[in-house]
Design a protein around this nucleic acid. Structure first.
Length: 423
RNA sequence: GGAGAGGUGGCAGAGUGGUCGAUCGCGGCGGUCUUGAAAACCGUUGUACUGUGAGGUACCGGGGGUUCGAAUCCCUCCCUCUCCGCCA
């Protein structure tokens, strides 16, 4: 969430910038400021009363020691009123704090100045493109047909075992996925990321820390019996490693990578978007996470985008990078670049990565801070990105590389798959 | 699942109802010494809110209670660890 300090000190600017996300902050921010003032006033009162009570208590202690029982009793009577004030004003203060927090989590992050205005996906800016468009042979088909033809993915079997959106991968496709995971992790490691194996279920505090809770509760599978959530991305457990942590400035940047299965309920999805591998309830992904000094986070964002670009290049996929417009960005992001690859038989661009700088928005919730020698502790910036999400990569690889003889594996992957064609 | 132990500052570990935000040690930071380092010695070292400031307030797992006063007593919830059982 945004810091209260920033909102109160830059009110007009905050409202103006939120407008780019099509969020009208006028009313809510007025309320925030009002509550903040009420909170401060209450605290001053309650603190003064507490200070007085503390002094009185010490006095009573001394009087009792000296055997001045009568004076001590007189002083005790004075405490009654003070305790009353502390209780009622204190309650007012915590009520204001609670409401304040409830409001703050409803305010989205401020978009970076470079974010294009716009409401929908069509308003995103194409930043750059690369790779070459494949020319498919006559009779080329979408990946769901290839999946049948080569017995690679059994969607119906997944329905039987679990439900729609839980495909069963078989044979060379299962091996291809395993190869991709290793390929992505090895690349990340070579790029300086520390590999992490995180838990796949998290508690509510972690979900809150990265912003899935409370607003996106419906997106996660919830194991109510233990009150744990299946992770929708490795970002959640990995970023939460740094919850309530004060790092030393010299430790920055933190660079972590993790493979995980990801679980998403995707309530409300339908139609061509969910066909085949395009949208699943369970999928594999390798995530990269960085925690960086505020002065360097945009430089880092560029590096992460460039890194992801090397992956799609090595996989020989046609790609484009989108700078998301204000209306299409996530609630918590300040600047997001999406990667899309072209899946030639579907004739569609598929999103395979989203790389974002959250600035201090997540860090404020997480209480992830750093401190440098003499300077004060301050909030760090957090960034993350997919590098990469598997299913749509697999879809594009299958579709783009199909030939009458079989499906060709890109050169960079062959050492990982151990085969060069699916036939 | 059964039984027991315990949750205190970065770590380790004391703590009698009052002068305890909390002993001591380690680590960290600064300094003396040294060509440099180590060692030794000296000093310093939690977080947040609040106040123009001196300062004030809160926090010893969470919440509640007793008391003039709670890290310390009571209730309750959560969590962790150990042993036994089961098990990849």
């Amino acid at each position: 969430m945004l810091t209260l300090k920033y909102i109160t000190e830059n009110t007009a600017e905050v409202i103006a910038r939120l407008a780019k996300k099509h969020f009208d902050g006028t009313a809510i921010i007025a309320q925030v400021i009002e509550l903040d003032n009420a909170r401060k006033a209450a605290q001053v009162q309650a603190d003064n009363a507490s200070a007085e009570l503390n002094n009185l208590s010490k006095e009573i202690g001394n009087l009792m020691k000296q055997g001045k029982q009568a004076e001590a009793n007189a002083a005790k009577e004075k405490t009654v009123e003070l305790k009353e004030i502390i209780k009622t004003i204190g309650d007012q203060q915590s009520a204001a704090e609670q409401k304040l927090n409830d409001l703050l989590v409803q305010i989205p992050n401020l978009p970076h100045e470079s974010v294009p205005s716009g409401k929908h996906a069509e308003d995103n800016l194409v930043e750059r493109t690369g790779g070459s468009m494949p020319t498919l042979y006559d009779g080329a088909v979408p990946h769901w047909d290839l999946a049948k033809k080569y017995d690679l993915i059994d969607f119906e079997l997944g329905v039987k075992i679990s439900g729609a959106g839980f495909p069963v991968y078989k044979g060379k496709c299962a091996r291809l996925q395993r190869a991709l995971i290793n390929f992505f992790l090895d690349n990340a490691r070579e790029s300086g990321y520390l590999e992490i194996q995180p838990p796949y279920v998290v508690n509510a505090a972690s979900g809150y820390g990265t912003g899935q809770l409370p607003d996106k509760e419906g997106q996660m599978y919830h194991c109510t019996i233990d009150d744990l959530y299946l992770i929708p991305t490795a970002e959640v457990p990995v970023t939460n490693i740094y919850r309530d942590v004060i790092l030393n400035e010299s430790e920055l940047p933190i660079k972590n990578t993790a493979y995980s299965a990801c679980f998403r309920r995707e309530a409300g999805s339908y139609g061509k978007d969910v066909r085949g591998l395009n949208r699943l309830h369970q999928f594999d992904k390798v995530e990269i996470v960085q925690i960086q000094h505020p002065d360097k986070s945009y430089e880092t964002l560029d590096q992460m985008v460039n890194y992801v670009q090397t992956l799609v290049d090595k996989l020989e996929l046609p790609w484009r990078i989108l700078r998301l417009c204000g209306g299409d960005m996530s609630f918590t992001s300040a600047l997001t670049f999406d990667f899309e690859v072209y899946s030639a038989a579907q004739e569609r661009w598929l999103e395979v990565s989203s790389v974002s700088n959250f600035e201090s928005y997540q860090a404020n919730r997480l209480k992830c801070r750093f401190k440098s020698g003499d300077k004060k502790t301050q909030l760090a910036h957090t960034l993350n990105g997919s590098a990469l999400a598997l299913p749509r990569i697999v879809a594009a690889l299958l579709e783009n590389n199909q030939t009458p003889e079989g499906i060709r594996i890109p050169k960079a992957l062959i050492p990982y798959t151990g085969f060069d064609i699916i036939d």
